Computed example of a mutant assay.
Amino acid sequence: MEDLVMMSSVNPVPDFWRGKRVLLTGHTGFKGSWLALWLHRLGAKVIGISLTPVTTPNLFDLASIETITDSHFCDIRDATLLAALINKAQPEIVFHLAAQALVRASYRDPLATFATNIQGSANVLDALRPLDSVRAVVAITTDKVYQNLEQPPYPYRETDVLGGHDPYSASKAAAEIVIASYRDSYLNEKGIAVASARAGNVIGGGDWSEDRLIPDAIRAWNANQPLQIRRPQATRPWQHVLEPLFGYIKLAENLWQQPALAGAYNFGPETHEAATVREVVQLAQSAYGRGQVTWGDGSQGPHEAGWLALEIVKARTLLGVKPRWSLAEAVQRTMHWYRLQLEGAGARAACEADIAIYEAANYSGQAS
């Protein structure tokens, strides 16, 4: 009966999460801060391991994430310190988000990207080997782990060939192999269910990362400067940050009850909802009420894929996870968040309001 409750529940199950010790690596980042807030809302005891925030401003500080987590600052490349922190935490569930997460930054420093995303992930998984407390691990990679042949409208499936042109994509594809190896060689034998999660391009309030579309737009438009767009026709599986986080949470719930569900999962919009950069920018302009744009011709900067979409049938079928918010709704919620923040609203309150609205929505994006 408990298994059926997990599988059929539309939202995360507070009774499941209440009091659970949850390790969250990368809790100072954009997605990590949102996930920490949601897990805290569900009653989990969140232990965070991460670098200090890398941008100013940042959601971790603005939403006072440190006050709701047992927070530790550690580079996941430091295997000794990392293992000591994880052993002390004795987590029951692990979300591994810590990463060097930017494509253009990976071109500038490929070795740091490989060390963080490959060796760092191995360090996290290796630290779990001696523990008897862990039951489920969700390791986050990216939609860019696939060997991208750029053949629209083909969406990549979890069984497709891994690859990566740029160092970031290559490092995440390699991390997928590391995750599978630790699962099959060690963690399965200990009864630890391990899954990897491959999410599409994420937008949402509180992101100030470099070289990301919405943060770049906010910075430019608030300074009354035009937004510089390199590749307006590049197509990506855009989604609000709450969409993949919901997927990660439901994946962990299901792994706890049904370890046989371990494996790789895509989380993104329906294939037909993949959109160009130009379409997203135009939606953002409309939602924000202002903003000039300078459109490039696609020739600027290093190689970036022109087309990418994900097939999400597996998550929908096995986990009951599918998108709730359309692209238009995701952009509107995102720009509304930044407007509230500009007007002096509290970041945590704005995030918690979005989480409540998301949980109250049905799968057409309307209030239920």
Rank of each mutant, 00 (worst) to 15 (best):
Q233E: 15
R236V: 00
R236P: 05
R236N: 00
H240R: 02
H240P: 12
V241P: 04
E243W: 01
Y248D: 09
I249T: 09
K250T: 06
L251R: 07
A252D: 06
E253R: 06
N254G: 13
L255P: 05
A260Y: 09
A260C: 00
L261W: 06
G263P: 04
G263V: 09
G263C: 05
Y265V: 04
Y265T: 07
N266H: 12
G268S: 01
T271S: 15
T271V: 15
A275H: 03
V277N: 01
E279D: 11
V280H: 05
A284Q: 01
Q285W: 05
Q285M: 01
S286K: 12
S286P: 04
A287M: 07
G289D: 00
R290G: 08
Q292N: 15
V293D: 07
V293G: 01
V293F: 01
T294F: 07
W295E: 04
G296V: 06
D297I: 01
S299G: 12
P302L: 00
G306C: 01
L308E: 14
I312Q: 05
V313P: 00
V313W: 13
K314N: 09
A315V: 01
A315L: 11
L318G: 09
L319R: 07
V321L: 08
V321C: 11
S326D: 03
S326C: 10
M335S: 06
M335T: 10
